[in-house]
Simulated scan of single mutants.
Amino acid sequence: MIYIEDEQVVIKTDKELEILIEKLVEYTLKEEGVTKEFELSILFVDNERIKDINREERGKDIETDVLSFPMLHYPKGKVFKEVYLNYDFLPEDLYEGRLILGDIVLSLEKAEEQRGEFDHSFKREVCYLIIHSVLHLLGYDHMEEEEKALMRKREEEILQKFNIIRE
């Protein structure tokens, strides 16, 4: 189950974008080996709100584009399919039978700014940031060059599958 909530008023969203996001998330999770019923939330905010959350949660008093809050633990360098692919989750690990993957907070205002910087569509920027965050929920990271290359490769593969390309 994917929950999408829009708490900002700066950028107008539409149902078409939400449907695309749901399809991207479901596809990414399936490709990464999530076979259980799942739950994750996506919250759209503005720059001011994401700055507040970034300061509260990470001690960084700056705006950012997206924040990911995974609920599963991953050993360094491991991703969902390497740790949990055939994992037998206990009932207490689940919420109403669903695996809680985590939360994503995305500043649509920042996505609009970055769309211009990267010279592509708002839709592409939002989709990229959603995939990026979902991969973070699944253990991917980009702190080390090798991990970064793997994460970027997965992001681009998924975007290409949906024909979301740089224009």
Rank of each mutant, 00 (worst) to 15 (best):
R58D: 05
D61V: 03
G33A: 03
E57Y: 00
F38S: 11
D52T: 12
L85R: 15
D52H: 07
E37S: 14
S68G: 13
L85Q: 14
H73L: 09
E48Q: 13
L40R: 12
S41E: 14
E82N: 02
P70V: 04
H73D: 13
V83H: 02
R55F: 03
E48M: 06
D65R: 11
E57F: 00
D52W: 02
H73C: 03
F44C: 12
I62R: 15
I50R: 09
F69E: 12
N54C: 04
F80I: 09
G59D: 07
L72Y: 01
M71R: 15
R58C: 02
K81F: 01
N54G: 03
M71L: 12
N86E: 10
L43T: 15
V83A: 03
I53D: 04
P75G: 11
E63Q: 15
V66E: 13
G77T: 07
R49V: 13
K36P: 00
T64N: 14
L85N: 08
E48K: 15
S41D: 14
R49S: 12
R49L: 08
K60M: 04
P70R: 06
K78Q: 13
R49H: 08
T64F: 02
P75L: 06
K60Q: 08
F44P: 10
E57S: 04
K51L: 06
V79H: 06
